[in-house]
Structures are given as C-alpha cells and as structure tokens.
Amino acid sequence: MSIFEYNGSAVVAMVGKNCFAIASDRRLGVNLQTIATDFQRIFKIHDKLYIGLSGLATDVQTLYQRLIFRHKLYQLREERDMKPQTFASLVSALLYEKRFGPYFCMPVIAGLGDDDAPFICTMDCIGAKELAKDFVVSGTASESLYGACESMYKPNMEPEELFETISQALLSSVDRDCLSGWGGHVLLVTPTEVQERTLKGRMD
C-alpha cells in the first residue's frame, strides 16, 4: 500500500464563469481505521487563493505551514498578495527542493488572478505542474473523481450551478473509495465573495 493512501483523501477544483470551486473530503484515517471526520485539507492563502493538499496528513500540515510562512514573507517584502501562477511556482519549487525525499502530498491550487480570471492547477509530489482549464483532481479517489467530473462538468457555469456540480461530483466519487469520504468541504470563490459549505455525505 502506497504512503499516499495511508490517510485517504479526495480533493477537486473546478472552474466556472469568473469563479472557481475547490472541495475535499473530511476523513482522517490510518489505513482502514477512521480517526476523525473533520479533517481539513483545503487552506486559504489569501482571499482569492486556496490550496488543497491530498496525501499524507502529516506532510499536508508541514507543507501548509511552510507555504503560509513563505507567503507571509512575500507579503511583507512585496506589500501585495501572490498571484496564483506565482504561488503555483512557489509550491512547485518547495516540493522539488525535496526531490529525493519528497513530501507525500499532491497539491491542488485554485485562485482568481488578474481581472478575476480563474486559475487551477495540480502537481505531483515533486512539483511537476499540470495546468487545466476545466477541473483538476487529486487523492485516493482521483480515478472516480475523473469520471464524475468528466461527465458532470460544463464550461462557464454560474456559481450556484458550479457548487452543485462540484458537490455532486465529490460525493458520488468518495462513495466508490474506501479511504476517503465522511462528508465534504466546499469553497466557492467569486470575485466578490467566498462561500464555505460543509457537506454531509454517507457516513460509512
């Protein structure tokens, strides 16, 4: 069994019309044993930039702390927030720094850039970026997420429809994965507001 599957995870991000949504499951497990059902995998970098980290929970926490640290230094030096593209490069560099002893996480980055253009991107654990215009997935439920997103996604969705789509995609995917699930956590980001919702899913 892979170390990426030790805790179990599902992370997905989708692009809509001038908005994006990022969602994750809430399970924290140790192999097949469930430890908690309120684990956080999606983190705020600033108002319009979020990162979801799938994979090993300890590295999720370590990496998040390092990223927040680096972003704070950037804010102090530059007196502005990072652009999503810049942040993606930072994450990539931080991961590749540990090329031969990696953090066992695969990040999903989603943000609104200049003129509120949505940006989403995922990476492997050594920082190889994979950009997408529609959706990105990561975690132990990634195979089923691909299927669900592929069939549910439409381009240029309005925020309400995007929320519904990403939630349904997440909930149906984690039901086919033993290691993720136990509810979901969805963030819907538009240029003017951020909506954060907790989903109830199958609790088994």
Binding site: L28, A36, L56, A57, T58, Q61
Partner: peptide, 25 residues
C-alpha cells in the same frame, strides 16, 4: 489532541492508539 508518530496533529473529542483502539474507538 491526537498526535501520531508521523506527526499528524488533530483535535479530537475521543481518541485511541494501539491494539486497544480497535475496541475502544
């Protein structure tokens, strides 16, 4: 707080470690 040996930290209401956890959880 639940902290395992690989440094996963989580605030919990109830937690357990070891073989006993299969029953106590």
């Amino acid at each position: 707080y639940y902290i395992d040996y690989i440094a996963t930290l989580h605030k919990v209401d109830k937690g357990a470690f070891g073989y006993g956890s299969y029953f106590t959880l």
